[in-house]
Design a protein around this nucleic acid. Structure first.
Lengths: 147, 147
DNA sequence: TTATTCTTGATGCATATGCATCTATATAAC
DNA sequence: GTTATATAGATGCATATGCATCAAGAATAA
């Protein structure tokens, strides 16, 4: 039994993988060139920064694409690098409150222009109608209701 | 200097990452459930199978999204699992010729229906016009001329 | 020929990831 | 209260990855 997939389906699949890994690689390469931390750190730093009053790993995990132990270790590394602090959570003895240090703030800020420039160069160049279709189509594939 | 990216650009970016990792995770999960090897093995097995007369790692590397040492170790694992054989290349003493064993063939064949079913369920459900736009748009992002 | 340089593929070492499990605290049942 | 169960986060161990380098053979130069 050899299943045959519609050409369109496999074309979307191969390009989806190629496109996402290519753009991701470009971002990683640009950050590394600037001596900045990897892309994964950016999202974590940014979520912590946005949650101005501190955020719990549990909550952060829901916003990041990481397993529990992965986040635990990411926080380890960011803390060791001096970008994040772990305080005890005062409403739950098991939990923590994460916050950025000044260095965490500035590192996040320095990453953004590099990151944004790559996205602009790689994605911002699409004609508007295609871009609109991509937002729709990828939204369906991502099965997410995010804005 | 805070760069602001067009909403559309960031929307495409977040959904691109979400969509590709989500579909990939689904495929990986389905394969694991069936006790089959991970997705990365599939592409390698399939390329080796298509190259009926054997293929050199060097050539394979050009078709896969892997660094040289990554492929070297992937082949290690597949060979240890009995799916692939390494013969010496008779036109280049440094090189090898890779080929599938019978077990490699049958494993690849067993993986395909699982793989294809997920792709069909996740991607095949897009309305035709969106699908066509995705092929175009992702093709531009992938910067590849592949069919 | 012999020395020089390039290419193919492997590998030592550091770091990252996946899985299962552990500890400590919190919640629920009694 | 005491005990059972669930949840937050860490960690030991096996495996995978990235980086740099190595060894062996091929290609080029002299």
């Amino acid at each position: 039994m050899t299943i045959t997939l519609p050409t369109e389906t496999t074309a979307i699949w191969t390009r989806l993988i190629l496109a996402s890994s290519r753009v991701q690689d470009e971002v990683e390469a640009a950050l590394k060139t600037e001596g900045l931390p990897p892309l994964g750190w950016y999202d974590a730093l940014w979520e912590i920064e946005k949650a101005a009053g501190g955020i719990r790993p549990l909550v952060l995990q829901g916003r990041l694409l990481l397993p529990q132990y992965g986040l635990s270790r990411l926080i380890d590394r960011m803390a060791k690098a001096g970008l994040v602090t772990r305080r005890d959570c005062n409403t739950d003895g098991r939990g923590q409150m994460l916050a950025l240090t000044a260095q965490g703030l500035s590192t996040r800020a320095r990453m953004w222009p590099i990151y944004a420039a790559v996205l602009q160069a790689e994605i911002g160049i699409l004609p508007h109608d295609l871009a609109a279709a991509l937002v729709l189509g990828l939204g369906l594939l991502a099965k997410t209701d995010q804005t």
